[in-house]
Design a protein around this nucleic acid. Sequence first.
DNA 1: CTGAAAGCGCTTACAG
DNA 2: CTGAAAGCGCTTACAG
Lengths: 338, 338
Amino acid sequence: MKKIFLKDIAKELGLSKATVSLVLNNRGDEIKISKETQRKIKKFAKDHNYFPNQLAKGLSRGKSESIGLIIPDISNFFYSEIAGRIEKEAEKNGYNVIYSSTYEDPIREARLINAMINRQVDGLIIASTQKNQKDILNLKKNNIPFVLIDRHYPEIKTNYVIVDNYQGMRNATEHLLKLGRKRIAFITLKAKLTALTERHKGYKEALEMYNIPINNTSFVELSSEGYPNEMGDAIRNLISKVGMDAIIFSTNILAVAGIRELNKLGVAIPEKVATLSFDEMGAFDIIAPPITAIRQPVKDIGLQSMKILLNTINGEDTNILKKRVLNTELVIRKSCGS
Amino acid sequence: MKKIFLKDIAKELGLSKATVSLVLNNRGDEIKISKETQRKIKKFAKDHNYFPNQLAKGLSRGKSESIGLIIPDISNFFYSEIAGRIEKEAEKNGYNVIYSSTYEDPIREARLINAMINRQVDGLIIASTQKNQKDILNLKKNNIPFVLIDRHYPEIKTNYVIVDNYQGMRNATEHLLKLGRKRIAFITLKAKLTALTERHKGYKEALEMYNIPINNTSFVELSSEGYPNEMGDAIRNLISKVGMDAIIFSTNILAVAGIRELNKLGVAIPEKVATLSFDEMGAFDIIAPPITAIRQPVKDIGLQSMKILLNTINGEDTNILKKRVLNTELVIRKSCGS
DNA sequence: CTGAAAGCGCTTACAG
DNA sequence: CTGAAAGCGCTTACAG
């Protein structure tokens, strides 16, 4: 069975391309094409396995029915879960999704945004490097529908779906405090991301509330690329020299790397040092000991962002900014003791 | 700065669209456009931030410069890692990638393949449900470039990149045997996937080589949806009634679920029962005890499949089938004892 | 109710 | 060296 086009159907049925196109787009009744003709067209199309060329359709309609997803790394568990949820929602609404990873490179991000636009995506969902304010502003100026996820630009008015990093970390730190920990370290990544500074802020304010003197704490920044190597020294220092009784990891990858080192050193968790991770991981409950973690509503980030995007693509109340700040959940397991 | 088109450049510069298009596609020298004109065109395009509409370009060229990735689930770690590697390679070659998840539903798979083709993707990478032989044959018949990954159809001649499941599992089972385990169970998923049957075969043949009587073994099949619930009973049965001294999990998600239950029951790993997983996971080395696992060359699956796909898209030796069977690696940790 | 025609924004023989 | 024109496969006013 060979590929069939609109003009083939028209010719076979002795109709014009217009009629066939209209009927196939379910506008037959509206245009008052006879039921019989409609039936014939649809049957023929089905029998011959006709599907319109989306490139042509997109070109003439000025929309592609695809959306672009730009994230730091598709192979990162957090983002791939979001990607999954987004795809489900997209499929339901007849959209395809194109993904691209920035690997935290703002230049790459700018290029990817551009490429997506040239592909005529109808909208974008972006977990930005947060170093491309200019490009995001451009999107706004050009009226391209988009929503920011996970990371946003506080200085720009945009749609976004993020998580309450501050509150999440503050709760978690209080949890540690209530369990009697007094010397709590905070290990994070050296990166200018609002999410990370918010988490740090939540940690600090919880400590203040409990009147923990600042030199009973420790703030460690590791580099995004070098953290697996730097973690060993950091942990050794915290344990032996500074004598911490708890360590908070600001992301799950840090937690995994940190616990790896803690294990190597034979440090007892939680007896000697309690540990806590922002962000979950599939196997956190079977690690020894199971890790207490701040769970992000990953699926919901995907769902909400997609809903907002579809709304703005369809031009519904585009002038109202849609901001969602989702709550996290503290999943208490054994790594903080009791 | 407003959006600019080919005709705008042509008009501004007093040239024809053809000249501009040709130069911008780096065919200026070939067509012998004066260096000066070429320079002017390129400068103008750059200054005005011109990028061609990919839909129009694709329509007239008959190719979209995008490829489709169809997998069981983008949020599954294994596939998202592959997706990451594929994207890297695609980007390098000017391709975009559109992903879609089948959730193991063959009907959905058929629909997705169709949708991708209507989007005019230049090629497909598919980790099939293995229940759509017909659609795969159709792809062949229509000369659409594609390569199968992870799962293939042994009865059809296609390009594919898979892993040596048989050998991987056989080695691993022997590892257990050499460590003195004599009653080894095999827990797998009730799914008709070659990968799983091959793994099972590797297990069986290793046992035969060591003359392990069949009733010293146990073969357990759980359902793909219900396995988290079914695992508890399965494990209890294996431990208490049957008295196994080792359990092999045919996938990593089964391993995680199984270890969860083993922990609940307080069964000592590896003292009482050794465990082994086909397929790795990020945190397997910090689980208690660290899990011995058969590692798949995930990145390489992505890289190889993309290379093959690009080759066939570019029409290089399309009549030679390209099959890759990659080796796995046994990562020995503590869950099998010593 | 239906058709002829223009247009979406490119590319690419073809002519000169 | 460069331009006019056709074509990719659709959609959509417009006319009747």
